[in-house]
């Protein structure tokens, strides 16, 4: 299985365009903010201190939440290619177990998602500091790394489930483009959850990757929120949190970090199960 995983990793990273394209969602979000969305937010919150820092961390949290969706999707490109070019025939006729093959595809996707997210995180931290923010403290860094692991684990399971239905290159690239474009909406990144109609808000709250986004926001924005809302009544801070999707409420109850984490774990379990069921049934 290790040999097979190594192969998948090599194949992914050697295809430069695939690597670049797998960051599609990240690029779309950065471009949107660089071009116009960023200014809109800054204008509306000028009164707050250090608002640049606050907004940058909010944006980075969103990037981290979706980076592992599109990168793991890109990683599964190897699996589709193997199916389409019938390369998998070669593996099926060699003494490697089918479960090791499935495990190899999953493992390499997971690893690719984690690596690409960590790279995104490092690049984002440098950007935040360069544009006047502060470094994240060590404990929060550790939390982010753990969150990256957990959210990638979940996103891999979701993506794997979707990909297990795909049998052609064309379908694969269409689906990955759609997901890469829409994911920013469903996680409340293009537009903050508070500025959307109630029905869409509900949709965002039941979409598991949104909970990863919220967790990332809670950790990354902790320090800048303290600075920016220093001396301002706490009800404004709470309103801000709900508006920007730092915390969600469901029927008046605040969703705690623990609940969000459980949602991530539960989703992973369900979708790994479904994917394996779907992938092993075919011959």
């Amino acid at each position: 299985m290790m040999v097979f995983m190594k192969r998948n990793l090599k194949l992914f990273f050697r295809d430069r365009s695939a690597v670049l394209f797998s960051l599609l969602a990240v690029f779309i979000i950065i471009a949107l903010y660089a071009v116009f969305l960023g200014d809109v937010w800054l204008d509306s919150m000028k009164a707050l201190a250090n608002v640049d820092f606050l907004m940058n961390t909010w944006l980075v949290a969103g990037l981290l939440a979706v980076a592992s969706v599109t990168t793991t999707m890109g990683a599964f490109g190897v699996m589709i290619e193997d199916k389409v070019k019938k390369i998998d025939k070669d593996f099926y006729s060699s003494p490697i177990k089918r479960s090791s093959l499935t495990g190899g595809y999953l493992g390499s996707a997971l690893l690719i998602g984690i690596i690409m997210s960590l790279v995104t995180f490092a690049a984002a931290e440098i950007y935040i500091v360069l544009s006047g923010g502060a470094w994240l403290d060590a404990v929060s860094c550790l939390k982010i790394v753990l969150l990256i692991f957990l959210s990638t684990l979940m996103n891999t399971s979701l993506v794997c489930f979707i990909v297990s239905f795909i049998n052609s290159n064309q379908a694969f690239s269409t689906v990955s483009t759609i997901i890469g474009t829409l994911i920013g909406f469903f996680t409340g990144i293009y537009l903050p959850i508070g500025s959307l109609p109630a029905s869409v808000q509900t949709l965002i709250k039941v979409f598991p990757p949104s909970h990863a986004a919220a967790l990332f926001r809670q950790v990354l924005m902790e320090a800048p929120m303290q600075t920016s809302f220093n001396g301002i009544p706490v009800q404004y801070l709470n309103e801000f949190k709900y508006h920007m999707g730092v915390t969600y409420s469901f029927g008046g109850h605040e969703i705690t970090p623990l609940v969000s984490i459980l949602i991530l774990i539960g989703t992973s379990a369900v979708f790994y199960g479904l994917s394996i069921l779907n992938m092993s049934g075919k011959r």
Binding site: V3, F4, K6, R7, K10, L11, R14, D15, K85, K86, I87, K89, D90, F91, S93, S94, P95, I96
Partner: peptide, 25 residues
């Protein structure tokens, strides 16, 4: 088995391909 279609990876060298596939055994 030599299949009708090519079953090695385009992006890898011959040596890498063979080494990886030998690793399956």
């Amino acid at each position: 088995v030599v299949f009708q279609d090519s079953i090695l990876d385009d992006l890898l060298t011959v040596r890498e391909n063979l080494t990886l596939r030998a690793g399956l055994y």
